[in-house]
Each structure stands twice: as structure tokens, then as C-alpha cells.
């Protein structure tokens, strides 16, 4: 089982994380569209980490089983947390100067998306799957 962990401390790590995402998607046989979707979703989430929490952790792992190819991505930070999760998932809502599309956009690009947040800990999990042929 393949696994990669990157500490997100600055903007260059955003690039490293999304490259790691694309690479794993590619090596597991996902097509170019899914590779781009996953890399883009990772870019949105890791940028949020830099913007709101300054630093955090990115983890990607291959959780494939007999039936399906599964990539799980986890992005975690220990920043202030998201006060209103429902609002944060709305398109166009932002507490910073951004467009406020990051979280809802990332959610649209992957197959499963879940977010947990409280002051001091925010954790987003994304899953991308494809059936074995």
C-alpha cells in the first residue's frame, strides 16, 4: 500500500502535494481528467491550510481493494477551525479575500468528501475511486 505524507508549510508545498496527487492517480490508472480533478482539489485544500492555519499535513494513500481502486487524501491543520461549516461549503462564501469557492469546488471534483472542524483542528478527507476492470 502506497502512502505519502507532506508537511504543508509554504506555497511550494501546495505544488508538491498536488504533484503527489497527480502522480498517484496516474500510477493507479486514473485518466487525465481524474488526475487533473484530484490535483486541483488538493491544491484548493492545501491552499486553505496555508491561508487559514499557516501549516498542516497532507497525506495521500492507496487504499485499493479487490473490487476498486481507491485513493484517499487527508488534509489536516491545527488552525482556528471553521466556525460555520455549512456556510463554508456554500459557493461564494469566504471569510478572507478569496473567491470562497475552494471547499465547494474541491467537493465537486472528487467522489467522496468529508470535513470535520473545531477550534484547533480541521480535517478534510477526500476519496477518488474507480472500479477494477
Amino acid at each position: 500500500m502506497d502512502k505519502k505524507r507532506i508537511e504543508i508549510k509554504n506555497e511550494a508545498d501546495i505544488v508538491l502535494a498536488r504533484q503527489a496527487g497527480r502522480k498517484m492517480a496516474q500510477s493507479l490508472g486514473f485518466g487525465p481528467a481524474d488526475q487533473t480533478r484530484l490535483a486541483t482539489a488538493i491544491s484548493e485544500l492545501t491552499r486553505n491550510v496555508i491561508q487559514y492555519a499557516q501549516q498542516g499535513i497532507f497525506e495521500i494513500c492507496d487504499q485499493s481493494n479487490r473490487k476498486a481502486i481507491i485513493i484517499r487524501v487527508m488534509v489536516e491543520d491545527f488552525g482556528p477551525g471553521i466556525a460555520d461549516l455549512d456556510k463554508a461549503m456554500e459557493y461564494g462564501f469566504s471569510t478572507s479575500q478569496s473567491l470562497g469557492v475552494g471547499l465547494p469546488a474541491a467537493k465537486k471534483l472528487v467522489h467522496k468528501f468529508s470535513i470535520k472542524s473545531k477550534p484547533g483542528h480541521t480535517k478534510v478527507t477526500m476519496v477518488m475511486t474507480r472500479k477494477r476492470v
Partner: peptide, 13 residues
């Protein structure tokens, strides 16, 4: 694939 992703993410990015 970039065009595809941008449109999927949301309107008028």
C-alpha cells in the same frame, strides 16, 4: 482537462 475541471468547479471561474 483543465477546462473541464474549471467548469465543474463552478461558474465563471
Amino acid at each position: 482537462t483543465v477546462a473541464l475541471t474549471l467548469v465543474e468547479m463552478g461558474r465563471e471561474l
